Simulated assay, not measured.
Amino acid sequence: PASRSLLDNLYFAYTQTSIWDLSADSKPFRDTSYKPRLFYYVADTGLHSPWFTRMGFAAGIGHESNGKAGPDSRSLNILFVQPTWEFGDLTSYHWQVSPMLYYYLGISDNRDIADYRGYMDLVDKYGSPDGWQLSTTLRKGTHH
């Protein structure tokens, strides 16, 4: 709420995920995904409730690609909205719930991606800002 301009809360993030085949002789990476994102983020929206300590909000656009060309290429773009609710003492161990709802853009080579990923990730986290944190992301596709 203390932000003075739109650019104060505009962020760029980059995540890279590599799946490593530890059972193979030379230990190759089986797959790598590159995930840049541009998003607007507010850690505290100023909304208060007896049910939660703080509510944050993020919304933006993301891209995911394996960096390959031709028939091995995999890429998609999403628009996303992600509210975050935190419960408990924010300076100590506390719980955080953060559903990310998304809409697919440009999935020409991934027409059935929603069958596998669905339209929402649910991030559930417990921990301390200056200590250990345990987090899990739940995702379910539209088909079994």
Rank of each mutant, 00 (worst) to 15 (best):
P1E: 06
S3A: 08
L7W: 04
N9F: 09
Q16P: 02
I19R: 10
W20G: 02
D21E: 13
D21F: 15
A24H: 09
A24G: 14
A24S: 14
K27S: 13
P28L: 03
P28A: 07
S33M: 11
L38G: 14
Y41W: 13
A43I: 01
A43L: 07
D44E: 13
G46K: 15
H48S: 06
W51G: 11
W51K: 15
T53A: 15
R54Y: 05
R54N: 14
M55S: 12
A58M: 07
A58P: 04
A58L: 06
G60D: 01
I61Y: 12
H63E: 00
E64R: 00
N66P: 02
G67N: 00
G67Y: 02
K68C: 03
G70Q: 11
T84A: 08
G88L: 12
V97Q: 07
S98A: 14
P99K: 13
M100Q: 14
L101H: 03
G106I: 04
G106W: 12
I107G: 09
S108R: 00
D112W: 05
D112V: 03
I113L: 12
R117N: 13
G118D: 08
L122R: 02
V123D: 00
K125I: 08
P129A: 14
L134F: 07
S135A: 11
S135Y: 02
T136Q: 08
T136N: 07
K140W: 03
G141Q: 09
G141W: 13
